[in-house]
Amino acid sequence: MTRPTQDMHDDARRDEAVTWHVRLQSDQAGEADWLAFEAWLGQPGAREAYDAIDGVWAELDLHHDALAEALREPAPMSAPPARAPLRRAGAVRGRPSRRLWFGALGAAAAAAAAAVAVVSILPAVTQPHWTTYSAEKGHNRAIRLADGSSVTLGAGSTLKVSLDGANRRVVMDNAEAVFDVAKDPSHPFLIQAGDHQVRVVGTRFDVLRANGRVVVTVERGIVQVRRTAAGEDQTPAELHAGQQFQRRGSETAVVRTVDPREAMAWREGRLIYRDAELGDVVADLNRYYDKPLRVSPDAARLHFSGVLALDGEDQVVRRLELLMPVRGAAGDGALILQRRPGA
C-alpha cells in the first residue's frame, strides 16, 4: 500500500504517538505537555498515527474480559512473589477454587497490600454528610452519585453514602448492590458490609450482605476485602476480575472464579445460584416479596442450583417445590418452606 520510505516515516510517527499517549496518561503531565502535544499533532501523519493508538487503546477495553482471562489464567498468581498465598483446595463444581488462609499470610503480603493503599491528597474538610438510599421490595433502583459513580441497589436494600470526607464511604447491611465506581485514587471508595470492609479505587463489582454472609464479586479492576471486627485477622484479600469472595459468619473465607454476570443477574430480574444453601436463597427472596418467606431448619441447608425468574412470589415458591424436596406451608403470617416428608 505504501512505499518503503513512507513506511519508515509511519513507523517513526507511530512510535512518537505511543510516547505521547503514555506520557499524557501520567499524572505528571502538565498543561505545557498538552500544548507541546498539540503542536506535534500539526505534523503530517501525526493525527492519524495517534488515532490508531487511541483505537487500539479503546479496543483493549472492548475485549477487556477476554484479555484479562487469557493473560492471567495460566499463572494466576505469577506476578509479584509478595502476592497473598492462595492454596488450592479442590474444585467447586468443576471450577477452580481457592481457599484463603488468613492466618498464613505473612508480612510480605501485608507489605504488598500497603503498597496498594492510596495516599490521600486532600485533607478531610468537613464532617461527613450521610445520605440514605432505599429500594422498595420488588424494585431495584439506579442511583447516580455525585462523584460519577453509579450504584444499582437491589430490591429491599438500604445503604448510606458519604462522599465529602477524605474517603468515599458506603455502609450497607442486609442489602445487595452493584457498584460502578468512578476512579479517583485520591479518594478511595470504602464499603462497610457488616464486619467486612471492601476497598476499591475504581472498578465494577457486586456486594451482598445478608443472612450472616458477605459475598463480593468483581467484574472489573481490583478490590480488597478485609474483616474489620476487633480481634480478627484483618489482612486484606485481593480480588481480581472474575473472582468472588464469600464468607459465612466467622467461617474461613473462600475465593473462587465465577462469571460475574451470574452474580449480577438480579438486575435483570433473575437470581442465579450454584450450589447455594436454601436459607440464603430465601434471604434473597425476602428482599423482593412482601409476604415473609421462611425456611424450616431441616430444609435450610439443602443446596440449590438453578435460575429463579423473579416474577410472582407464588410462582417462585412453586418452582422451588418442583426443583427441590420442599413444600410451602402457610403459618404465622409467613410461608414456610419445609422438607417434604420422605424426601
Partner: peptide, 13 residues
C-alpha cells in the same frame, strides 16, 4: 490497562 491502576500505583505495586 486491565486492572486500571495508574502508573504511580503500578510502580508502587
Amino acid at each position: 490497562k486491565l486492572d486500571g491502576l495508574s502508573h504511580a500505583e503500578v510502580a508502587a505495586r
